[in-house]
Computed example of a mutant assay.
Amino acid sequence: MTGFFKQLMIFSLPLVLLTAVSGCKPKKPAFTSPAGYDLNNPEKFNMPESLLEISGIAFYKDKSDTVYSIQDEDGRLFRQSWMNKKQKHAVFGSKGDYEDLAILNETIIVLESDGTLYVFPFAEAVQEEISDIKIYKDLLPKGEYESIYANNQTNQVYLLCKNCKGDKKDKAMSGSIFTYNTAKKELIPSGDFSMDLSEMIEKEEILKTGLKASALTRDPHSGEWYILSSVNKVLVVATPDWKVKSVHRLNSSVFNQPEGLAFDNQMNLYISNEGDELSAGNILKFKHK
């Protein structure tokens, strides 16, 4: 063997070994899931054309036999049995930009993107047109909203701001809490909160502009918050005091435009997706393991 080939072997061997070792390292999965769920294997329920732009979803007393939902443009509350495309609806408003809803015991609250809240009795959901309705226009700080959650035990309502003044600068996401007075049928301001996004931004898990929450719900057992972001294509799990616990990137081939989020009484997780020219709107069910 000539001196040239000896030198070539000396320099090449470490490179070959390094390549072999690095090739043996286990690859991290691209799309992770919260404990107890597999976000890559859903049961899919395709929506009818009337719910192509499905946004918020909710269950009455966490019973998943009937899904209540809204879509972006029309002021209609939809209801349908699981895996049955046939839907009925009740009109509660005119054309608008409706983003989410919550069912608080016997009361339904619909959220419009400018922060306007439509509040009416659950019993009205079976009517063709809802008449007993109260509209709150200036209850929330000025901004853009897409996320609402109602706690049946405390009668409290939580709202996350998608785009509010100061949030981007502070690398935070702000939110408001209200208590619903059943006797007076009033929403009473009960405080606010903030969620630190700086670590997620530094890790490039979300955009510099923030989380841009599109839906919110809460694990009824652990009290952990589940926050969905369609813009960032992530599902964030946070502690009860709004500290980030885990961030899960969502597969765009599974989640077209995730906009709605809910748990049922069996701890199954549901995420709704708006459709487009190529695909129908849908609700994805993730069974609890």
Rank of each mutant, 00 (worst) to 15 (best):
G3I: 10
F4V: 15
F5R: 15
Q7M: 14
Q7F: 13
L8A: 11
I10H: 08
F11P: 10
S12T: 09
L18E: 06
L18M: 14
A20Q: 06
G23W: 05
C24F: 13
K25F: 02
P26A: 06
F31C: 10
A35L: 15
D38V: 06
N40A: 09
P42H: 05
E43Q: 12
N46A: 12
N46E: 11
E49L: 12
L52D: 14
L52R: 08
I54C: 14
S55P: 04
S55L: 09
A58L: 00
Y60W: 10
Y60G: 06
K61T: 00
K63V: 11
K63E: 12
V67Q: 01
Y68M: 10
I70H: 02
Q71P: 08
E73M: 12
R76P: 05
L77Q: 04
N84D: 14
K86H: 13
K86I: 12
K86A: 14
Q87D: 14
G93L: 10
K95H: 11
G96N: 03
D97M: 02
D100R: 02
L101W: 05
I103A: 05
I103F: 01
N105Q: 15
N105Y: 05
T107G: 01
E112P: 08
D114P: 05
G115H: 05
T116W: 07
L117N: 04
P121A: 06
P121C: 06
F122R: 05
A123H: 11
E124F: 04
A125N: 03
A125I: 01
V126H: 10
D132H: 10
K142A: 11
E144N: 14
E146N: 06
A150Y: 00
N151K: 02
T154Y: 03
Q156S: 15
Q156P: 07
C161V: 11
D167T: 09
D167A: 11
M173K: 03
S174T: 03
S176Y: 05
I177W: 08
S190V: 00
S190K: 10
G191W: 03
S194F: 00
S194T: 02
S194A: 04
M200R: 10
I201L: 09
I201A: 08
E205L: 14
A213E: 00
A213C: 03
T217P: 00
T217M: 04
P220C: 01
L228G: 02
V236W: 00
T239H: 07
T239L: 08
P240T: 04
P240C: 03
P240R: 00
W242S: 15
V244Q: 03
S246R: 09
H248P: 07
N251P: 02
N251S: 01
S253N: 13
V254N: 15
F255V: 00
F255I: 00
P258L: 06
L261K: 08
A262T: 08
N265A: 02
N268K: 07
N268I: 01
S272E: 07
S272K: 04
N273F: 09
E274L: 04
D276N: 13
S279E: 13
A280N: 14
K287N: 14
H288T: 11
